[in-house]
Design a protein around this nucleic acid. Structure first.
Lengths: 189, 189
DNA sequence: TTGTTTGACGGAGGGTTCTCCGTTAAGTTG
DNA sequence: CAACTTAACGGAGAACCCTCCGTCAAACAA
Protein backbone atom coordinates (compact mmCIF):
# COMPACT_ATOMS: atom_id res chain seq x y z
CA UNK A 1 0.00 0.00 0.00
CA UNK A 2 2.61 2.46 1.00
CA UNK A 3 4.36 2.17 -2.33
CA UNK A 4 1.10 2.85 -4.06
CA UNK A 5 0.62 5.89 -1.91
CA UNK A 6 3.97 7.16 -2.93
CA UNK A 7 2.98 6.65 -6.49
CA UNK A 8 -0.23 8.50 -5.99
CA UNK A 9 1.62 11.25 -4.31
CA UNK A 10 3.62 11.70 -7.44
CA UNK A 11 0.79 10.86 -9.77
CA UNK A 12 0.92 14.10 -11.68
CA UNK A 13 4.69 14.04 -11.78
CA UNK A 14 4.77 10.54 -13.15
CA UNK A 15 2.32 11.43 -15.86
CA UNK A 16 4.22 14.45 -17.07
CA UNK A 17 7.44 12.51 -16.88
CA UNK A 18 6.07 9.81 -19.12
CA UNK A 19 4.65 12.42 -21.43
CA UNK A 20 8.01 14.14 -21.65
CA UNK A 21 9.72 10.91 -22.53
CA UNK A 22 7.19 10.17 -25.24
CA UNK A 23 7.49 13.60 -26.75
CA UNK A 24 11.26 13.57 -26.51
CA UNK A 25 11.48 10.24 -28.27
CA UNK A 26 9.25 11.60 -30.98
CA UNK A 27 11.12 14.88 -31.35
CA UNK A 28 14.54 13.28 -31.33
CA UNK A 29 13.33 10.99 -34.05
CA UNK A 30 12.90 14.03 -36.25
CA UNK A 31 15.96 15.95 -35.20
CA UNK A 32 18.54 14.35 -33.00
CA UNK A 33 19.73 17.66 -31.53
CA UNK A 34 16.41 19.35 -30.99
CA UNK A 35 16.30 22.02 -28.35
CA UNK A 36 14.97 21.17 -24.93
CA UNK A 37 12.77 24.20 -25.27
CA UNK A 38 10.98 22.69 -28.22
CA UNK A 39 10.42 19.47 -26.33
CA UNK A 40 8.97 21.24 -23.35
CA UNK A 41 6.77 23.32 -25.57
CA UNK A 42 5.44 20.42 -27.57
CA UNK A 43 4.78 18.55 -24.36
CA UNK A 44 2.74 21.52 -23.22
CA UNK A 45 4.87 21.99 -20.18
CA UNK A 46 7.14 24.69 -18.81
CA UNK A 47 10.83 24.47 -19.42
CA UNK A 48 11.41 24.38 -15.69
CA UNK A 49 9.34 21.23 -15.42
CA UNK A 50 11.45 19.49 -17.97
CA UNK A 51 14.60 20.46 -16.15
CA UNK A 52 13.32 19.25 -12.82
CA UNK A 53 12.57 15.86 -14.25
CA UNK A 54 15.78 15.68 -16.26
CA UNK A 55 18.38 18.04 -14.84
CA UNK A 56 20.53 17.67 -17.91
CA UNK A 57 20.09 16.77 -21.50
CA UNK A 58 22.23 13.71 -20.97
CA UNK A 59 19.91 12.43 -18.32
CA UNK A 60 16.90 12.73 -20.58
CA UNK A 61 18.58 10.94 -23.43
CA UNK A 62 19.85 8.33 -21.02
CA UNK A 63 16.34 7.56 -19.85
CA UNK A 64 15.15 7.36 -23.43
CA UNK A 65 17.60 4.66 -24.29
CA UNK A 66 17.86 2.91 -20.99
CA UNK A 67 16.05 -0.16 -22.24
CA UNK A 68 18.09 -0.30 -25.40
CA UNK A 69 21.23 -0.32 -23.31
CA UNK A 70 19.70 -2.94 -21.10
CA UNK A 71 19.10 -5.13 -24.10
CA UNK A 72 22.67 -4.68 -25.18
CA UNK A 73 23.85 -5.77 -21.79
CA UNK A 74 21.68 -8.85 -21.80
CA UNK A 75 23.02 -9.74 -25.19
CA UNK A 76 26.38 -10.54 -23.66
CA UNK A 77 24.91 -13.41 -21.67
CA UNK A 78 22.99 -14.63 -24.67
CA UNK A 79 26.07 -14.59 -26.85
CA UNK A 80 28.15 -16.31 -24.24
CA UNK A 81 25.59 -19.10 -24.12
CA UNK A 82 25.52 -19.61 -27.84
CA UNK A 83 29.10 -19.01 -28.89
CA UNK A 84 32.63 -19.73 -27.80
CA UNK A 85 33.99 -16.91 -25.63
CA UNK A 86 36.20 -15.18 -28.15
CA UNK A 87 33.54 -15.26 -30.80
CA UNK A 88 30.99 -13.98 -28.33
CA UNK A 89 33.30 -11.15 -27.49
CA UNK A 90 33.78 -10.23 -31.10
CA UNK A 91 30.11 -10.40 -31.90
CA UNK A 92 29.24 -8.33 -28.89
CA UNK A 93 31.62 -5.59 -29.86
CA UNK A 94 30.20 -5.53 -33.35
CA UNK A 95 26.75 -5.22 -31.92
CA UNK A 96 27.94 -2.53 -29.59
CA UNK A 97 29.22 -0.61 -32.57
CA UNK A 98 26.02 -1.06 -34.48
CA UNK A 99 23.89 0.06 -31.56
CA UNK A 100 26.09 3.05 -31.03
CA UNK A 101 25.89 4.20 -34.61
CA UNK A 102 22.43 3.17 -35.64
CA UNK A 103 20.22 5.15 -33.36
CA UNK A 104 21.07 8.80 -33.23
CA UNK A 105 21.53 9.79 -29.64
CA UNK A 106 22.27 6.30 -28.47
CA UNK A 107 25.91 6.90 -29.16
CA UNK A 108 25.82 9.77 -26.76
CA UNK A 109 24.28 7.52 -24.17
CA UNK A 110 26.82 4.80 -24.58
CA UNK A 111 29.66 7.24 -24.44
CA UNK A 112 28.51 8.65 -21.14
CA UNK A 113 27.40 5.24 -19.92
CA UNK A 114 30.93 4.04 -20.42
CA UNK A 115 32.60 7.34 -19.65
CA UNK A 116 35.35 7.50 -17.14
CA UNK A 117 35.35 9.70 -14.12
CA UNK A 118 31.59 9.62 -13.85
CA UNK A 119 29.00 6.91 -13.83
CA UNK A 120 31.16 4.04 -14.83
CA UNK A 121 33.72 4.73 -12.16
CA UNK A 122 31.51 4.74 -9.10
CA UNK A 123 28.21 3.39 -10.29
CA UNK A 124 29.78 0.52 -12.21
CA UNK A 125 27.98 1.28 -15.41
CA UNK A 126 25.89 -1.53 -16.82
CA UNK A 127 27.94 -1.79 -19.95
CA UNK A 128 31.07 -2.18 -17.91
CA UNK A 129 29.44 -5.15 -16.28
CA UNK A 130 28.73 -6.81 -19.58
CA UNK A 131 32.30 -6.35 -20.73
CA UNK A 132 33.55 -7.86 -17.51
CA UNK A 133 31.45 -10.96 -18.10
CA UNK A 134 32.90 -11.35 -21.54
CA UNK A 135 36.39 -10.80 -20.26
CA UNK A 136 35.96 -13.33 -17.51
CA UNK A 137 34.80 -15.98 -19.94
CA UNK A 138 37.71 -15.33 -22.22
CA UNK A 139 40.15 -15.31 -19.37
CA UNK A 140 38.96 -18.75 -18.42
CA UNK A 141 39.26 -19.90 -22.00
CA UNK A 142 42.71 -18.39 -22.22
CA UNK A 143 41.93 -16.53 -25.39
CA UNK A 144 42.66 -13.00 -24.27
CA UNK A 145 45.34 -11.37 -22.22
CA UNK A 146 44.80 -11.83 -18.55
CA UNK A 147 45.51 -8.35 -17.31
CA UNK A 148 42.64 -6.66 -19.10
CA UNK A 149 40.02 -4.58 -17.39
CA UNK A 150 36.68 -3.57 -18.81
CA UNK A 151 38.01 -0.08 -18.63
CA UNK A 152 40.79 -0.89 -21.03
CA UNK A 153 38.40 -2.38 -23.51
CA UNK A 154 35.93 0.46 -23.45
CA UNK A 155 38.75 2.92 -23.82
CA UNK A 156 40.13 1.03 -26.75
CA UNK A 157 36.88 1.08 -28.66
CA UNK A 158 36.20 4.71 -27.86
CA UNK A 159 37.22 5.55 -31.40
CA UNK A 160 33.72 4.49 -32.37
CA UNK A 161 32.42 7.70 -30.89
CA UNK A 162 34.39 9.66 -33.45
CA UNK A 163 32.79 7.95 -36.37
CA UNK A 164 30.16 9.84 -38.23
CA UNK A 165 27.02 7.73 -38.58
CA UNK A 166 25.96 9.69 -41.63
CA UNK A 167 29.06 8.72 -43.54
CA UNK A 168 28.65 5.61 -45.61
CA UNK A 169 31.89 4.00 -44.59
CA UNK A 170 31.35 4.02 -40.86
CA UNK A 171 30.63 0.34 -40.86
CA UNK A 172 33.85 -0.49 -42.60
CA UNK A 173 35.88 1.73 -40.32
CA UNK A 174 34.23 0.40 -37.23
CA UNK A 175 35.00 -3.10 -38.35
CA UNK A 176 38.64 -2.28 -38.96
CA UNK A 177 38.90 -0.62 -35.59
CA UNK A 178 37.37 -3.54 -33.77
CA UNK A 179 39.57 -5.97 -35.56
CA UNK A 180 42.63 -3.98 -34.59
CA UNK A 181 41.55 -3.76 -30.99
CA UNK A 182 40.86 -7.44 -30.87
CA UNK A 183 44.35 -8.13 -32.11
CA UNK A 184 45.70 -6.04 -29.28
CA UNK A 185 43.62 -7.86 -26.72
CA UNK A 186 44.54 -11.32 -27.88
CA UNK A 187 46.79 -13.42 -25.85
CA UNK A 188 50.22 -13.60 -27.33
CA UNK A 189 51.40 -17.10 -27.88
CA UNK B 1 55.69 45.77 -52.20
CA UNK B 2 52.26 44.50 -53.08
CA UNK B 3 52.32 42.01 -50.25
CA UNK B 4 53.23 44.79 -47.91
CA UNK B 5 50.35 46.80 -49.21
CA UNK B 6 48.04 43.95 -48.51
CA UNK B 7 49.40 43.84 -45.03
CA UNK B 8 48.90 47.52 -44.57
CA UNK B 9 45.46 47.21 -45.92
CA UNK B 10 44.69 44.79 -43.17
CA UNK B 11 46.90 46.54 -40.68
CA UNK B 12 44.18 47.15 -38.16
CA UNK B 13 42.77 43.72 -38.67
CA UNK B 14 46.08 42.06 -38.08
CA UNK B 15 46.62 43.99 -34.91
CA UNK B 16 43.28 43.07 -33.40
CA UNK B 17 43.75 39.51 -34.49
CA UNK B 18 47.07 39.29 -32.69
CA UNK B 19 45.57 40.98 -29.68
CA UNK B 20 42.69 38.51 -29.62
CA UNK B 21 45.08 35.60 -29.72
CA UNK B 22 47.13 37.00 -26.85
CA UNK B 23 44.11 37.63 -24.73
CA UNK B 24 42.61 34.26 -25.57
CA UNK B 25 45.79 32.46 -24.59
CA UNK B 26 45.78 34.36 -21.33
CA UNK B 27 42.12 33.76 -20.58
CA UNK B 28 42.21 30.08 -21.46
CA UNK B 29 45.14 29.73 -19.13
CA UNK B 30 42.85 30.73 -16.29
CA UNK B 31 39.76 28.88 -17.38
CA UNK B 32 39.87 26.41 -20.22
CA UNK B 33 36.23 26.88 -21.13
CA UNK B 34 35.94 30.61 -20.79
CA UNK B 35 33.19 32.30 -22.75
CA UNK B 36 34.03 33.95 -26.03
CA UNK B 37 32.17 36.95 -24.73
CA UNK B 38 34.64 37.37 -21.91
CA UNK B 39 37.54 37.16 -24.32
CA UNK B 40 36.11 39.79 -26.62
CA UNK B 41 35.38 42.01 -23.68
CA UNK B 42 38.81 41.73 -22.16
CA UNK B 43 40.35 42.40 -25.56
CA UNK B 44 38.29 45.56 -25.71
CA UNK B 45 36.60 44.45 -28.88
CA UNK B 46 33.07 43.68 -29.96
CA UNK B 47 31.88 40.13 -30.03
CA UNK B 48 31.24 40.42 -33.74
CA UNK B 49 34.88 41.23 -34.34
CA UNK B 50 35.99 38.13 -32.56
CA UNK B 51 33.64 36.02 -34.58
CA UNK B 52 34.79 37.49 -37.88
CA UNK B 53 38.35 36.62 -37.10
CA UNK B 54 37.52 33.22 -35.69
CA UNK B 55 34.15 32.02 -36.94
CA UNK B 56 34.06 29.27 -34.38
CA UNK B 57 35.55 28.53 -31.01
CA UNK B 58 37.38 25.60 -32.53
CA UNK B 59 39.10 27.83 -35.00
CA UNK B 60 40.32 30.16 -32.30
CA UNK B 61 41.67 27.36 -30.18
CA UNK B 62 43.20 25.80 -33.24
CA UNK B 63 45.13 28.95 -34.01
CA UNK B 64 46.26 29.18 -30.41
CA UNK B 65 47.85 25.78 -30.52
CA UNK B 66 48.88 25.66 -34.13
CA UNK B 67 52.55 25.91 -33.27
CA UNK B 68 52.30 23.30 -30.58
CA UNK B 69 50.74 20.94 -33.06
CA UNK B 70 53.42 21.85 -35.55
CA UNK B 71 56.07 20.95 -33.02
CA UNK B 72 54.39 17.64 -32.42
CA UNK B 73 54.41 16.95 -36.12
CA UNK B 74 58.06 17.80 -36.47
CA UNK B 75 58.83 15.51 -33.58
CA UNK B 76 58.00 12.53 -35.74
CA UNK B 77 60.88 13.28 -38.07
CA UNK B 78 63.18 13.91 -35.17
CA UNK B 79 62.24 10.65 -33.52
CA UNK B 80 62.61 8.73 -36.74
CA UNK B 81 66.12 10.06 -37.10
CA UNK B 82 67.17 9.12 -33.61
CA UNK B 83 65.36 5.86 -32.98
CA UNK B 84 64.46 2.66 -34.73
CA UNK B 85 61.04 2.93 -36.38
CA UNK B 86 58.99 0.99 -33.92
CA UNK B 87 60.50 2.76 -30.96
CA UNK B 88 59.97 6.10 -32.68
CA UNK B 89 56.36 5.21 -33.21
CA UNK B 90 55.88 4.28 -29.59
CA UNK B 91 57.61 7.38 -28.31
CA UNK B 92 55.64 9.58 -30.62
CA UNK B 93 52.36 8.19 -29.43
CA UNK B 94 53.39 8.73 -25.85
CA UNK B 95 54.24 12.30 -26.66
CA UNK B 96 50.98 12.69 -28.47
CA UNK B 97 49.18 11.54 -25.37
CA UNK B 98 51.15 13.87 -23.13
CA UNK B 99 50.52 16.83 -25.40
CA UNK B 100 46.86 16.03 -25.58
CA UNK B 101 46.41 15.83 -21.85
CA UNK B 102 48.85 18.37 -20.57
CA UNK B 103 47.60 21.61 -22.02
CA UNK B 104 43.93 22.19 -21.49
CA UNK B 105 42.32 22.92 -24.80
CA UNK B 106 45.04 21.25 -26.80
CA UNK B 107 43.17 18.01 -26.53
CA UNK B 108 40.23 19.64 -28.22
CA UNK B 109 42.52 20.80 -30.99
CA UNK B 110 44.04 17.42 -31.54
CA UNK B 111 40.68 15.75 -31.55
CA UNK B 112 39.36 18.00 -34.25
CA UNK B 113 42.70 18.10 -36.02
CA UNK B 114 42.51 14.34 -36.30
CA UNK B 115 38.76 14.19 -36.60
CA UNK B 116 37.18 12.24 -39.40
CA UNK B 117 34.78 13.67 -41.89
CA UNK B 118 36.25 17.15 -41.64
CA UNK B 119 39.73 18.52 -41.84
CA UNK B 120 41.63 15.30 -41.81
CA UNK B 121 39.63 13.83 -44.60
CA UNK B 122 40.03 16.50 -47.23
CA UNK B 123 42.68 18.78 -45.86
CA UNK B 124 44.94 15.92 -44.87
CA UNK B 125 45.44 17.15 -41.35
CA UNK B 126 49.01 17.74 -40.27
CA UNK B 127 48.89 15.10 -37.59
CA UNK B 128 47.70 12.57 -40.10
CA UNK B 129 50.80 13.32 -42.11
CA UNK B 130 53.07 12.65 -39.18
CA UNK B 131 51.45 9.33 -38.49
CA UNK B 132 51.82 8.38 -42.12
CA UNK B 133 55.52 9.03 -41.93
CA UNK B 134 55.84 6.81 -38.93
CA UNK B 135 53.76 4.13 -40.55
CA UNK B 136 55.81 4.22 -43.71
CA UNK B 137 59.03 3.80 -41.80
CA UNK B 138 57.64 0.89 -39.89
CA UNK B 139 56.22 -0.67 -42.98
CA UNK B 140 59.65 -0.62 -44.49
CA UNK B 141 61.13 -2.09 -41.35
CA UNK B 142 58.44 -4.75 -41.32
CA UNK B 143 57.55 -4.07 -37.72
CA UNK B 144 53.88 -3.24 -38.12
CA UNK B 145 51.04 -4.61 -40.14
CA UNK B 146 51.13 -3.45 -43.70
CA UNK B 147 47.48 -2.59 -44.21
CA UNK B 148 47.37 0.21 -41.67
CA UNK B 149 46.27 3.70 -42.47
CA UNK B 150 46.88 6.80 -40.37
CA UNK B 151 43.15 6.87 -39.99
CA UNK B 152 43.17 3.54 -38.27
CA UNK B 153 45.82 4.61 -35.84
CA UNK B 154 44.21 7.88 -34.90
CA UNK B 155 40.93 6.11 -34.43
CA UNK B 156 42.54 3.53 -32.22
CA UNK B 157 44.05 6.07 -29.88
CA UNK B 158 40.90 8.17 -29.75
CA UNK B 159 40.28 6.76 -26.30
CA UNK B 160 42.76 9.33 -25.09
CA UNK B 161 40.13 11.99 -25.60
CA UNK B 162 37.96 10.34 -23.02
CA UNK B 163 40.56 10.53 -20.32
CA UNK B 164 40.17 13.17 -17.70
CA UNK B 165 43.36 15.21 -17.40
CA UNK B 166 42.47 16.20 -13.87
CA UNK B 167 42.41 12.60 -12.69
CA UNK B 168 45.71 11.41 -11.33
CA UNK B 169 45.71 8.11 -13.14
CA UNK B 170 45.35 9.43 -16.66
CA UNK B 171 48.99 8.76 -17.38
CA UNK B 172 48.73 5.16 -16.36
CA UNK B 173 45.57 4.62 -18.36
CA UNK B 174 46.97 6.33 -21.40
CA UNK B 175 50.01 4.13 -21.20
CA UNK B 176 47.93 0.99 -20.96
CA UNK B 177 45.81 2.08 -23.89
CA UNK B 178 48.80 2.84 -26.08
CA UNK B 179 50.41 -0.42 -25.22
CA UNK B 180 47.27 -2.28 -26.16
CA UNK B 181 46.94 -0.41 -29.42
CA UNK B 182 50.54 -1.08 -30.26
CA UNK B 183 49.98 -4.78 -29.74
CA UNK B 184 47.15 -4.62 -32.20
CA UNK B 185 49.21 -2.81 -34.76
CA UNK B 186 52.17 -5.14 -34.55
CA UNK B 187 52.86 -7.49 -37.32
CA UNK B 188 51.90 -11.00 -36.44
CA UNK B 189 54.69 -13.44 -36.87
C1' DT C 1 42.68 67.05 -51.81
C1' DT C 2 38.47 64.83 -52.21
C1' DG C 3 35.32 61.28 -53.28
C1' DT C 4 34.98 56.18 -53.38
C1' DT C 5 35.74 51.58 -52.25
C1' DT C 6 36.36 48.06 -49.02
C1' DG C 7 37.56 45.78 -44.92
C1' DA C 8 36.98 46.16 -39.91
C1' DC C 9 34.15 47.20 -36.18
C1' DG C 10 30.45 47.02 -32.66
C1' DG C 11 26.50 45.50 -30.83
C1' DA C 12 21.55 44.52 -31.28
C1' DG C 13 18.87 40.45 -31.64
C1' DG C 14 17.20 35.61 -31.91
C1' DG C 15 17.81 31.17 -30.14
C1' DT C 16 19.63 27.96 -26.26
C1' DT C 17 20.81 26.21 -21.85
C1' DC C 18 20.03 26.26 -17.15
C1' DT C 19 18.48 28.48 -12.46
C1' DC C 20 15.41 30.25 -9.28
C1' DC C 21 11.31 31.26 -7.04
C1' DG C 22 6.44 32.49 -6.51
C1' DT C 23 2.14 29.95 -7.46
C1' DT C 24 -0.92 26.08 -7.69
C1' DA C 25 -2.99 22.01 -6.47
C1' DA C 26 -2.67 17.20 -4.92
C1' DG C 27 -2.57 14.58 -0.88
C1' DT C 28 -2.56 14.46 4.42
C1' DT C 29 -3.95 15.27 8.99
C1' DG C 30 -6.86 16.55 12.84
C1' DC D 1 -14.28 19.26 5.94
C1' DA D 2 -10.88 22.69 6.66
C1' DA D 3 -6.15 23.80 7.36
C1' DC D 4 -1.76 22.38 6.22
C1' DT D 5 2.32 20.32 3.87
C1' DT D 6 4.76 19.48 0.08
C1' DA D 7 5.67 18.37 -4.56
C1' DA D 8 4.89 19.87 -9.22
C1' DC D 9 4.40 23.64 -12.22
C1' DG D 10 5.49 27.66 -15.14
C1' DG D 11 8.10 31.09 -16.81
C1' DA D 12 11.00 35.15 -15.96
C1' DG D 13 15.76 35.94 -16.16
C1' DA D 14 20.81 35.48 -16.55
C1' DA D 15 24.39 33.87 -19.37
C1' DC D 16 25.88 32.26 -23.61
C1' DC D 17 26.46 31.32 -28.74
C1' DC D 18 26.21 32.98 -33.12
C1' DT D 19 24.33 35.99 -37.05
C1' DC D 20 23.50 40.01 -39.32
C1' DC D 21 23.86 44.60 -40.64
C1' DG D 22 24.59 49.61 -40.20
C1' DT D 23 28.63 52.52 -39.28
C1' DC D 24 33.30 54.03 -39.64
C1' DA D 25 37.77 54.82 -41.21
C1' DA D 26 41.87 53.31 -43.72
C1' DA D 27 43.63 52.85 -48.41
C1' DC D 28 43.25 54.33 -52.92
C1' DA D 29 42.15 56.66 -57.23
C1' DA D 30 41.13 60.84 -59.74
Amino acid sequence: MSTKRVEQLHAQGLRTRACLLDVAREVFEECHDASLNSIAKRAGVGIGTLYRHFPTREELVFELYRDQVQRLVLASEELLRTHPPLEAFRLWMERFARYAMTKAGLMEVLRTATAHGRFAQEARGPVTGAVEQLLAANREAGTLREDLTADDVLLAVAGLYQLDPSAEDWEQRAHRLLELVLCGLRRRD
